[in-house]
Design a protein around this nucleic acid. Structure first.
Length: 464
RNA sequence: GUCCCCUUCGUCUAGGGGUUAGGACACCGGGUUUUCAUCUCGGCAACAGGGGUUCAAAUCCCCUAGGGGACGCCA
């Protein structure tokens, strides 16, 4: 079993491409086959090395490793020429001298007549060659019959050859076109299963005809539906036609991305969470949906939090470090990252969010949320803070138990209910009313910083 | 316009002749709780429409509507 992912390097790896790659990869891995990366760069104008790098970066991030490639089509020109010569000698393709202008007019006329625009085959039976005139090479599509193929996702599809025209396989400049190079490559690479977006369904009969002309058995095809944006419309820049690696920047784990992607158009009963191993063993093209699926950020976030909660704290800490660096938080002076992860993983949907919440443990000054300070930092709490400051200072072994004991003593001394003290203290310690458990927060801050922050609050309270 | 593909809660989906049409996200409410979360319990919510076939249709067939794609010397 051999599958391939064949993007054209004209942009980054977006969601749709990533999912197609994932399905191809899963199918190959499931059957202990090979997965090949092929770069379709015959459109020299629009292809770029940056795009190649971006695609590979995206695949690496998701862990979609390939067994062969990247194979570049531009490096296979000699081979395409060879096949073209063969087809030419067998009269299965022909030179067409029709100008672009003529083709343009033809198309307009056909549209006006409410016909499907297609080449009329004028040069198909030309007896004499026009020496020195520019020409393209066209494939002689069978005039009769139809192409039938059994799509692994969509089921049987039949297209009448009469619907097809003689497609161009080589341009005036001598370069081969997409429908031709795909066929030659899939053939040479022994691709057994072509998995791609269903926008290629229309190309499939043409490609099968070429394969048949070459005298070979076509591979199996599996056309997976497109991914739609949040609004159910085609993916656009706003909501997902962005690079998958943007999600890495936005604080998503590759595990979550992969899990989200695999469930978009594929399912296994009621199961929502899949490890990579489970995906591989459970995946099957039979279970891929035929209808397009809309992208939904909420579910991705839920999955992301799930993996933040369940992956090893060590792993999360490593990623969190990068995100803290991005927002210029120096983690040299502050708690161990793993402790922070444990305190925040249940209250963060992304690493970006976690980094924002973690920042307060590493900063020298507390910046108060105005509303929170107005509500909770008032003179009533001043004596409590003073007491707390002294008591905390006396702690020798700074841990959650000893801190908890001091906290309890403070509550008893001033006859306060837990929230009456916890909330003002939160504001004093981290600036907002939201934080991990109060003992944990104090512990994470460390004795020095905790006392320092309470002092800062006392100063603030005294000038009120 | 022509051809191709698609249609189950708002979203992702299960279900392939007999189901109170199931799960998940989101949303709403209860519980736990020290805030926010987590966790937990419950609720809301769908077979696009119309014809057939059948004792019985979400499920099979046809039509209509709606959505998407293709119709390039792009891939």
């Amino acid at each position: 079993m051999r599958t391939r992912f064949a993007p054209s390097p004209t942009g980054f790896l977006h969601l749709g491409g990533a999912r197609t790659a994932l399905f191809s990869w899963l199918y190959a891995r499931k059957h202990q086959g090979e997965f090949i990366l092929r770069i379709e760069d015959t459109d020299v104008e629009r292809s770029s090395q940056e795009a190649v790098d971006a695609i590979i970066d995206g695949m690496n991030w998701l862990g979609l490793d390939y067994d062969e490639g990247p194979v570049f089509q531009m490096q296979r020109m000699a081979r395409y020429q060879e096949v073209i010569q063969q087809l030419l000698s067998e009269a299965k393709i022909y030179k067409c001298y029709c100008s672009k202008e003529r083709l343009e007019k033809l198309r307009e006329m056909q549209m006006a007549n409410k016909e499907k625009p297609r080449y009329d085959g004028r040069c198909r039976n030309l007896v004499e060659e026009a020496e020195g005139e520019p020409f393209v090479l066209r494939f002689k599509t069978p005039l009769q019959g139809s192409v039938i193929f059994d799509d692994l996702v969509k089921g049987p599809i039949e297209v009448n050859n009469a619907e097809l025209d003689d497609l161009i396989i080589q341009r005036t400049d001598g370069t081969p076109t997409y429908n031709f190079t795909v066929v030659v490559d899939d053939l040479d690479m022994n691709i057994t299963t072509v998995i791609r977006g269903d926008d290629h369904i229309n190309n499939t009969p043409r490609q099968i005809n070429i394969l048949l002309a070459l005298g070979v058995i076509p591979p199996q095809y599996a056309h997976v539906p497109m991914i739609l944006g949040q609004d159910g419309k085609r993916l656009s820049k706003r909501h997902g036609a962005m690079s998958v690696t943007q999600y890495r920047e936005d604080g998503y784990l590759p595990e979550a991305m992969l899990n989200y992607l695999v469930r978009l158009g594929w399912s296994h009963g009621d199961q929502e969470i899949f490890s990579k191993e489970e995906m591989i063993s459970l995946f099957d093209l039979q279970d891929v949906n035929r209808a397009p699926a809309a992208f939904n950020t909420e579910k991705l976030q839920w999955l992301n939090q799930h993996y933040l909660k369940t992956e090893s704290p060590d792993y999360i800490a490593g990623l969190l470090a990068k995100h803290l660096q991005m927002i210029k938080v120096d983690i040299a002076n502050g708690p161990e990252l793993i402790l922070v992860v444990n305190a925040l993983r249940e209250r963060s949907k992304t690493l970006v969010e976690m980094a924002e919440k973690a920042a307060c443990f590493y900063q020298d000054k507390v910046v108060y949320d105005v509303k929170a300070a107005d509500k909770f930092l008032n003179e009533d709490i001043l004596p409590v803070f003073e007491f707390l400051h002294v008591q905390l200072q006396n702690i020798i072994d700074w841990n959650e138990d000893s801190i908890g004991a001091v906290f309890k003593l403070s509550l008893e001394t001033f006859n306060l209910k837990m929230p009456k003290l916890a909330q003002p203290l939160r504001v004093a310690l981290v600036g907002s009313t939201q934080s991990p458990g109060i003992s944990t927060t104090l512990h994470l801050l460390g004795k020095d910083k905790a006392l320092h922050n309470i002092s800062q609050a006392l100063d603030y309270l005294k000038v009120l």
